[in-house]
Write a protein that binds this DNA or RNA. Structure first.
Ligand code: FES
Ligand code: FES
Lengths: 150, 150
DNA sequence: ATAGTTTCAGATAAAAAGGTCTTAATATCT
DNA sequence: AGATATTAAGACCTTTTTATCTGAAACTAT
């Protein structure tokens, strides 16, 4: 199955959204996140190690330890998250690698392809982790502002 | 790097477009296709074996042998090609696998996500191999009708 | 201090994707 | 018939991705 990003990217988005929905005062155990997001725990640990290096979270060992967001989720763009794990895509490249297309002339689909790529890019570039949380928060009877994170 | 399909799918689209642009009277050597499309020859052979089973091409061994389209490229949808190699995607699933979303309530992005997925789906479902050939053909001073394929 | 808890770090393993090679079969040409 | 050309088939290899395991380090509470 192929979508726009790797499994690691999907997982980390899911995990970060979970964190963004919680009160950011306490550290949250990887185990808890793993259970709620259905991400294999050892794999999630590894992913958190990675983004800990990127300073998106802070972690604490030992009792009452866990992980906690270190950045404002409203500033964490999907594009950044995905690029961090999968590398930056070349959105100017023809989706099917026809290299003749666009050089001296264009295929009939060139503009249609570009439009689609642009929409994908814009979505990933304009969407943040925080964007996913809004309605869910309401359901949980907690609003973003009530949480006063950052 | 992650796009919407596997390398095999990308390759086969490129190869099929190349075939669709040629006079369909003769068999064309895999080697020639490999060189023009910059697909590793042994890998391309393998792919052709696959789509030969699917009856999209016919092949002939021995001198003057090669491969040739067996179906009208205007009937070969990208979605079919990609599904054949990568399996059918679940376009209803949340892109990030948040399973709570959409059940009792939706996240703020639900509609935006759905729109994007739909556009991807529509593009793949409405585009055929033949759609890529039009302008290139003109460059090569050969029109689709002149070729009289099918 | 000590015991218990939890992440850190790195090694390792399993699975999937991408790519190559070799031999056999088949067709054509002379 | 024999030589040559070309795909078929499948085994094999490599790399990347996904996932797991283990021991050490760090923190807390008692
Ligand atoms: S062939 Fe890809 S955009 Fe024209
Ligand atoms: S969380 Fe994916 S569409 Fe709402």
């Amino acid at each position: 199955m192929y979508m726009l990003y790797s499994k690691s990217s999907e997982y980390v988005v899911r995990a970060l959204v979970y964190l963004a929905m919680k009160d950011n005062a306490d550290f949250i155990m990887v185990k808890e996140i793993s259970e709620h997001t259905e991400i294999p725990q050892p794999f999630l640990s590894k992913i958190f190690q990675d983004i800990s290096r990127a300073k998106w979270i802070t972690s604490k060992k030992g009792k009452n330890g866990g992980v906690k967001l270190a950045v404002n989720p409203a500033k964490l763009k999907l594009l950044d998250v995905i690029s961090y794990f999968d590398g930056m895509q070349d959105y100017s490249r023809c989706m099917f690698g026809h290299k003749e297309c666009g050089v001296s002339s264009k295929c009939a689909l060139h503009n249609k392809c570009s439009d689609l790529k642009n929409e994908i890019y814009d979505f990933l570039n304009s969407t943040t982790i925080a964007d996913f949380t809004s309605i869910w928060k309401k359901e949980n009877k907690v609003s973003l502002k009530e949480l006063k994170i950052f």
